[in-house]
Amino acid sequence: MSSAVLISIAMTVVGAATPILLAALGELVVEKSGVLNLGLEGMMLIGAVTAFAVTYSTGSAPLGLIAAMAASAAASMIFGFLTLTLTANQVATGLALTIFGIGLSSLIGQGFVGRTVDALHRTFPAALAEHPVWRLIFGHSPLVYISLVMTALVAWFLTRSRAGLILRAIGESDEAAHSIGYSVIGVRYLAVAFGGAMAGLGGSYYSLVLTPMWADRLTAGRGWIALALVVFASWRPLRLLAGAYLFGAVMTFELHAKAAGVSFLAPEFLAMLPYLATIVVLTVISVAPAGGRLAAPACLGKPFRATG
């Protein structure tokens, strides 16, 4: 296999990994604050359609990205109001948000089906972006670099900043954090909004970069993979990065093995690989001493009512 093909495959892996990394990073922060938002898929779809609609109408992709983040964050606020203020069940509300997002994105997108925009492919000048080798580093969409920067920022925020410490405290023991005067609900609202904005950014990757168009259910279930990835990464940003790229690599490997006519592995086996990888990694994490089971925020999914 020539190096040009290998670079090309690597580029495809980056494309498969980036949107799920973006969405999963947001969800990781949400879950660290003790909230489980299963509405990722719906928020990604709302982001995808908003990014496309705004970019198509205004011709400005940056504006499209900002609008996508705002729209998905707004959708996440519905979830926030129901689960944080009204203490509704988070699992049921999250699922409802996904169903709502599928319907709403389809409604908004009605007038945009069958249209296309210029893909947001390049960040750097063509000399670098289309260089046969350097394109591996410089040939990506701005969203790819944003996802990497955000991974570093989230990692720094959670482990090195005071605000991150407060957020983690709220996720681990909401009662204790509340009793020393932190606003549990306020911080959780912020986390949920951040998760929404990141999901919107992830969704935009589909409608502006990977397949620059809008069609119903464009993300085709990637939100669920992002959700699983957070558990897979045992709530750690750098593991999340590795996990997203591992998933991207496995999904791409499946297609390349089929395209190369690899016949000693059944196609059904190849299709199974991403899920097999999930099971293997979950097993490894769970038996490790500082195990994955213990890594889950203690208050994850539990409603909080301020008392006293």
């Binding site: 085709a220 395209a259 190369a260």
Partner: peptide
């Protein structure tokens, strides 16, 4: 293995082109 999954369809086409 899908009628409709734009991201997968696009990556499948890329894999075929790479081959």
């Amino acid at each position: 293995n899908t009628w409709y999954d734009p991201a997968k369809e696009a990556d499948a086409a890329k894999a075929l082109i790479d081959q």
